[in-house]
């Protein structure tokens, strides 16, 4: 066992890990941050997506040891300071961009990374950016719509509901 220290959602944390401990295992089991989910074992579904030093990373495809000293942000750390939903989270609720909720944390974190790089993405750019986030419930229609709305674009012309 070795020790790892990182900042998670703005708080310094230290924990014991094995060499093989994945970042997602450290978050879920070590820190009880269970909002980050595991939906596959081939690095494709994106349910585990978090930000490491500001960039989107699949927490199932990074060792906890690699995050030594890093700033890690998970879904638990993105709401407004008063606990209310942030713009992206709120848009997902407003436009019904989630159903079972399992892929949702990864989707929200992915959308945040997209909008940081591209504040006003087109529908096609959003769809391509979500290559690594699989949703089985929504058919993506309302996810794409929510992300467009979160970026301040008018979505009233997109097929209703």
């Amino acid at each position: 066992m070795a020790s790892v220290t990182m900042n998670v959602n703005g708080k310094p944390v230290t924990g014991e890990i094995e060499g093989r401990t994945l970042l997602v295992e450290f978050l879920r089991n070590g820190l009880s941050l269970t909002g980050t989910h595991v939906g596959c074992d081939t690095s494709q579904c994106g349910a585990c997506l978090v930000h490491v030093d500001g960039e989107a990373v699949k927490a199932c495809t990074m060792f906890a040891a690699e995050a030594e000293g890093a700033e890690v942000t998970t879904i638990e750390g993105v709401s407004n300071p008063d606990g209310s939903l942030n713009t992206i989270q709120q848009a997902f609720q407003d436009y019904h961009g989630l159903q079972c909720g399992f892929c949702t944390p990864g989707m929200v974190m992915s959308a945040a990374a997209l909008l940081k790089d591209n504040p006003s993405p087109s529908e096609q750019e959003i769809r391509e950016y979500l290559q690594g986030n699989i949703c089985r419930c929504t058919g993506y229609h309302n996810i794409v719509k929510a992300i467009m709305a979160a970026s301040g674009q008018d979505v009233s012309r997109i097929a209703a509901e």
Binding site: G46, K58, T61
Partner: peptide
């Protein structure tokens, strides 16, 4: 891959 893969 996808954006997260391209970051690592």
């Amino acid at each position: 891959g996808d954006p997260a893969v391209r970051n690592r």
